[in-house]
């Protein structure tokens, strides 16, 4: 049971990196993008469905591996940077067409998306006890992979061609490495099996709904005209 829930945790974190990776990549590319409306329109319908994978990661950490939760307080500054950047990126999307100037929010989105990548570098490096400079470098790697994935996504969505699998898999690599490194320690810190049984029974019936809703998003917004709300 503990291995099953570690699998859920890993799946959610990897899912977050591959999915939210292209949103953040497109965000960082905005200053270099001539048609920003179309770029944001391309990611727009996916953002809400993508970012929520990380909320689920936090939930599973809480419910199935509460003893591992101290990774957050142990990497306090990195987590604060992650959250503030994430919040500002979202605010940029909601407000861009509506408050002040578009350029202001577009720069906010770009800088905040980069902030999220740096924070991930610091946080993931922190898990392995690596130094801050190494964490920043790791963050740059995350940013570079996300930018690649974001470019690929824009091509795929706007001109229609190729596949997202390669860049998507690459975007997940920075998360897979620490997952492999910490797997043993995380599993050893799982909640008692009675808890995991309750969680399993509660969540299992919803798995088809969760998967169905995500697939629905891709089917509905994967092609066709680019909607404008963000």
């Amino acid at each position: 049971m503990d291995i099953l829930w570690f699998g859920v945790l890993a799946l959610l974190l990897i899912g977050y990196f591959t999915l939210e990776g292209f949103d953040l990549g497109v965000g960082m590319l905005l200053p270099l993008t001539p048609d920003r409306d179309r770029a944001i329109g391309a990611i727009g319908p996916f953002v809400l469905a993508n970012e929520v994978w990380l909320i689920a990661v936090a939930g599973v950490l809480f419910g199935a591996f509460p003893a591992c939760e101290n990774v957050l307080s142990a990497n306090y500054e990195a987590v604060v940077l992650l959250l503030v950047s994430w919040v500002l990126r979202d605010a940029g999307l909601w407000f861009r067409r509506r408050l002040f100037t578009r350029a202001f929010w577009e720069w906010t989105i770009a800088v905040a998306s980069f902030g999220v990548c740096l924070a991930w570098g610091l946080l993931l490096a922190g898990l392995g006890g690596f130094s801050v400079p190494f964490g920043l470098l790791y963050g740059l790697l995350v940013a570079a992979l996300f930018v690649m994935h974001g470019r690929r996504f824009l091509d795929w969505r706007l001109t229609g061609g190729g596949s997202l699998l390669v860049t998507g898999a690459l975007a997940a690599v920075p998360a897979i490495v620490p997952l492999v490194g910490t797997a043993g320690a995380v599993v050893a810190n799982a909640a008692p099996s009675a808890n995991l049984t309750v969680l399993t029974f509660m969540v299992l019936p919803f798995v088809p709904v969760l998967a169905g809703a995500q697939i629905w998003v891709w089917r509905a917004f994967g092609k066709g005209p680019v909607p404008a709300y963000f």
């Binding site: 809400l48 939930g59 419910g63 199935a64 969680l199 809703a213 629905w216």
Partner: peptide, 21 residues
Amino acid sequence: GAPLALETLIAFFLESTFLGL
């Protein structure tokens, strides 16, 4: 942790996805 985990997995995850739709 149990109710918080259930909130994220079987409530908010779906809420956010359906709101986007």
